[in-house]
């Protein structure tokens, strides 16, 4: 673990929704080409933290953010960097699969178009993105069909393909499997393990088994604070803090 490079990090991060402080002095780093899981009970700020990294909170005028967030050594909140650039480099997969009400092909093509990729290059990128997401075999003949006809698991993989197509550096996943059945979940997890060869992945999950199955590193949060972080195996098997031990053994949460 010592020689790993930190791809994405924050230090001294505080966040308020109106008057309520949701994140308290958070400092963590996410290692490159690794999967990091954020776990903790509902409302502990996992998703809120995740959304800081692609500036999704910009949309909410009530939010106030303090602290430093870095991608490599670049400040994500630097005024000189456009928010659309940030979101292209830091992609996001949401809790509920949210394909656009368009065709399967258009769902991926849209992001490419928006980001000014020449139309001649797009079909190849769309195809490879769908392949990377292990969806190609299932949809190769149906690219013109509405994405909403796909099953929940397929929709979520399409959303991952949509993110991957932009060649982001980091992929944030906000409980990507919470609405899926076990088989679809397994497929997504398999996909996550493959994706980490090329991307740095941060995943929020409520499912402890899932964290243990996919994550290299695990961060336990409680009431807006990071309680414990470390290699997944040691966080789950040899937790240092009482709170962590209680949570992972199911006393609360």
């Amino acid at each position: 673990m010592s020689e790993e490079k930190i791809k994405l990090s924050c230090s001294g991060l505080n966040l308020w929704f109106g008057k309520k402080q949701v994140l308290k002095n958070i400092s963590i780093g996410f290692p490159e080409n690794k999967v990091t899981a954020l776990i903790g009970p509902s409302g502990c700020g996992k998703s809120t933290l995740l959304r800081c990294f692609n500036r999704m909170h910009d949309l909410n005028p009530d939010t106030r953010i303090e602290g430093k967030l870095l991608l490599d050594s670049e400040d994500l909140y630097n005024r000189a960097i456009s928010v659309t650039q940030v979101r292209k480099r830091v992609g996001m997969v949401f809790q509920k699969a949210n394909p656009f009400p368009k065709s399967i092909y258009e769902n991926i093509n849209y992001g490419l178009k928006i980001n000014g990729i020449p139309s001649a290059e797009r079909p190849a990128i769309v195809e490879s993105a769908i392949k990377e997401s292990f969806l190609w075999e299932e949809v190769r003949d149906e690219l013109k069909k509405p994405a909403t006809r796909l099953s929940g698991g397929q929709q979520q993989r399409l959303c991952i393909a949509r993110t991957v197509a932009l060649r982001p550096e980091v992929i944030l996943m906000d409980e990507p499997c919470s609405a899926l059945d076990p088989i679809s979940t397994l497929k997504i997890e398999e996909l996550i393990r493959k994706l980490k060869e090329h991307y740095t992945i941060v995943i929020v999950t409520h499912n402890m088994q899932q964290a243990q199955r996919v994550a290299d590193k695990t961060v336990f949060m409680y009431l807006g604070e990071v309680i414990e972080e470390g290699v997944t195996d040691s966080v789950f098997n040899r937790p240092e803090k009482e709170l962590t031990r209680n949570y992972i053994s199911g006393y609360f949460g």
Binding site: R87, G91, Y110, R162
Partner: peptide, 10 residues
């Protein structure tokens, strides 16, 4: 829908 769109950098 909007989040998905913002999420790809729109």
């Amino acid at each position: 829908y909007r989040e998905a769109s913002y999420g790809v950098g729109a």
